[in-house]
């Protein structure tokens, strides 16, 4: 069983489009959406919810107004600027900013601070026509959760092992932060989806530098490849220099945009030549790195 993550650095380059196609093309796999901040894989996989659990992570501080003597010591010691003084002089905690460090509780001379477990969202298991999907839902405003991503991946791996499946396909988050780090740790391969724009190339290089710390097998897909052919060639060259296979390049095609808007994958458009491009992404990746011959 191997875990493959789809990442990009920059948002909107086509991660979810690629994985929506792979969901339909790759047999015997489990799907995991590791972008818990903007979970979009469910939009294109027609999931039927099987179970959902409240996800708790960490704590936040709560100040009891009865006990608070308004000495301001908590506010002076909070490194996260998360103690709010109201217009009436009362003290409270900004639950977005609070990191649950407990320093306010430590320094409070009036014992007015209690820690409360924080519900940070949901973890869901759904049945889709393409296999089981594990997806999370981070409550808006919570700190990005690498731990939720790790937990979703554990659930996905368990499900794949139970069924003797070969693959866990993971839809990654944009950026290079903790969600992305948690989706790269211990995976077998990463398909990086980029596009020939200066911004996407800049972000591609940053996320590949991050991924290379984890010694992951990386393949590159160039989406919207005809927007700027010279930059497409530049990505080619850069991938060659860094010994990463270019898996496929996919031209800008309004039919793909429209299909996704209708919650369909590009391989459902019914254009064999287009479907072939997405098959090539997977086949080239597997043949480069995971072929046993």
């Amino acid at each position: 069983m191997k875990q493959i993550v789809i990442i990009s650095g920059k948002g909107g380059t086509g991660k979810t489009t690629v994985i929506s196609a792979l969901a339909r093309l790759v047999p015997d796999k489990v799907l995991v959406d590791a972008d818990v901040d903007a979970a979009n894989l469910e939009i294109v996989t027609s999931p039927e919810l099987e179970s959902s659990e409240i996800y708790t992570e960490g704590e936040i501080a709560v100040i009891s107004d009865d006990k608070c003597i308004r000495c301001d010591i908590c506010r002076q010691n909070c490194r996260f600027d998360s103690i709010i003084v109201g217009d009436d002089g009362s003290y409270s905690v900004d639950e977005h900013g609070c990191e649950g460090c407990r320093v306010c509780k430590l320094v409070c001379p009036a014992d007015a601070v209690e820690m409360q477990v924080m519900e940070s969202g949901f973890v869901k298991k759904s049945k889709t026509p393409y296999g089981m999907l594990f997806h999370g839902e981070l409550s808006a405003g919570r700190d990005n959760s690498g731990k939720m991503v790790t937990y979703l991946r554990e659930l996905g791996v368990e499900e794949a092992q139970k069924n003797n499946f070969d693959w866990v396909l993971i839809d990654g988050a944009p950026g290079i932060g903790c969600q992305v780090i948690a989706s790269l740790t211990g995976v077998d391969g990463a398909i990086v989806v980029s596009e020939p724009t200066l911004s996407a190339i800049h972000d591609l290089k940053r996320v590949v530098e991050l991924a290379s710390h984890f010694h992951i097998k990386i393949g590159v897909v160039i989406n919207k490849s005809d927007i700027n052919l010279s930059l497409t060639r530049e990505i080619h060259r850069w991938a060659d220099e860094n010994k990463m296979p270019l898996l496929e390049q996919i031209p800008l095609d309004k039919r793909i945009v429209n299909a996704m808007a209708e919650r369909k994958s590009p391989v459902e458009i019914g254009d064999d030549a287009l479907t072939k491009l997405y098959e090539n992404i997977w086949n080239n990746f597997i043949e480069t790195y995971f072929s046993h011959h």
């Binding site: 948002g11 901040d37 903007a38 900013g97 990005n144 944009p174 950026g175």
Partner: peptide, 11 residues
């Protein structure tokens, strides 16, 4: 702003 609706966006 960054993408998403998590804490960095709030800030």
């Amino acid at each position: 702003c960054p993408p998403g609706a998590a804490h960095p966006t709030v800030e």
